[in-house]
Amino acid sequence: MLKYLIGVVIAAYVIYLVYRQVKNFKNKNYCATCSGCPSASSCGQFKDDTQS
């Protein structure tokens, strides 16, 4: 029982990560996180420019 639970939890987290990555790519957010990135705030700007 426990092994199925652990497996389901890991699988759910993996599916969530894949979903999040696909969603980010579709929104032109290509990085895992903006924190520490020198161009973090430019992301939105460039996104706007490509969409305008």
């Binding site: 990560l17 999040r20 990555q21 895992a32 996180t33 924190s35 520490g36």
Partner: peptide
């Protein structure tokens, strides 16, 4: 701290996914 946080976040997401 921001860079360490980014590094650990990447470990818990992209690296985790790739490892699985």
């Amino acid at each position: 701290w921001e860079n360490v946080k980014a590094y650990l976040t990447k470990a818990g997401t992209t690296i985790f996914l790739a490892s699985v």
